[in-house]
Amino acid sequence: MEKARFHSLVVLQVKVIYCLFAALALSVVAVLDLVEARTVFAAVAAAFALALLLYALVLLLRGQQRSSPVTEWLMILGLSLFTLFGMQTHEDVVHWVYFVPGYIYFLFPFHVASYLALVYSTAMVLMVISEFDSYLRLQILFTYGACYAFAVMYALINDRHNHGLSAIVNTDPVTQVYNQYQLSLDLSKEMTRADRQTDLLSLVGIVIPPSWRVLKTEEYESRLSYLTKRLKRCLRRFDTCYRLDSDVFVVLLPHSTDAVVEALCENLMDDLEGSGRFEGLADIRLRKDSYHPEDDVEDMIARMEKESDDQHA
């Protein structure tokens, strides 16, 4: 999984550097406000600078980022409340609304950020219309619209770039396991090796519960990520995990015997059933399959996906 780790590390480092630069810029703003005796605004800028600095340190210490953790929700909630209610008491607060779209798209995945930005923008526009005269409305809304459009376009380009990068490294960006294309490549090689060495080659399919598929995207991806973390703990050093396009997970087990396959399945189910973090973990189904000389790559992948169809029938 070296390429998957490298991809994750690059994304993490970019986010940390962005946080540090943003914290530095806000520190300068805080100093300027303090010089002008605007202590309230200086305190707000310093608080957000400190929050970004702490967030960068958390990312470095944790070594990976989760999908929308509590820290990010608190930062956006604090900035949103400060701008929406602060505009009613002091007109200078309106300049902070231009930061919000960029922060939302920076801190959250694109699909989540789009909903949050739309809700915030609606509330902000209504408040600007009700609190400011027609001349100021036009300036504020035009500048905010430009900032909003820039944030959306930047986030969209970044999202597509991440998808393109994940395709290059052949990994799934959510679970950090290999994708179906990489399974086709690896399975073809292992089948050739098994034929030449008269060795055993097995697959184990992990089929998620149908109830998970109706969840919201963020919750669904969180469960898939948790499942793969549990699954990786049960694998041998040379076993490999893949996520199919149908969201069936497949473990490729070279040099495997029936006892090895059974041990993997038992360890995984014992681990999942002993965890109460998510509902439905005990409803996960496993499918065992072995390579035969008459099989080809498409046949074996189709059998793994057929298990998913059977579960939904």
Rank of each mutant, 00 (worst) to 15 (best):
R213K: 14
T171N: 02
D159V: 02
L24Q: 12
I104Y: 06
Q88T: 13
L116K: 05
D239K: 04
T198C: 14
A282H: 12
R287L: 15
V100D: 05
T71E: 10
N158V: 03
F238L: 12
A30I: 12
A37T: 14
Y181I: 15
Q180M: 05
S130W: 07
F85T: 11
K306Q: 15
C147V: 12
L79Y: 04
R223C: 04
V169K: 00
Q176D: 11
A123L: 13
L136N: 09
K288S: 14
A25M: 04
H292A: 11
Y135H: 11
R196W: 12
A117G: 03
S114G: 10
R5I: 04
P173H: 00
I76H: 05
G86Y: 00
L244D: 05
L107H: 01
F110T: 02
L74M: 09
M124D: 07
L286P: 04
A49Q: 04
A25E: 07
L74A: 09
F238H: 12
F106A: 01
R277Y: 15
V152W: 05
L203W: 03
M300W: 07
A43I: 09
A4C: 15
Q64A: 14
F238S: 13
I208L: 14
E221N: 06
F150G: 02
V10A: 02
F21I: 05
L77A: 14
C234D: 05
E273T: 07
Y103I: 12
L126N: 07
L116G: 02
Y98M: 10
F238Q: 12
V297A: 01
S8A: 15
K15S: 02
Q65F: 03
E131L: 15
D33T: 11
H255I: 10
A22P: 00
D195F: 09
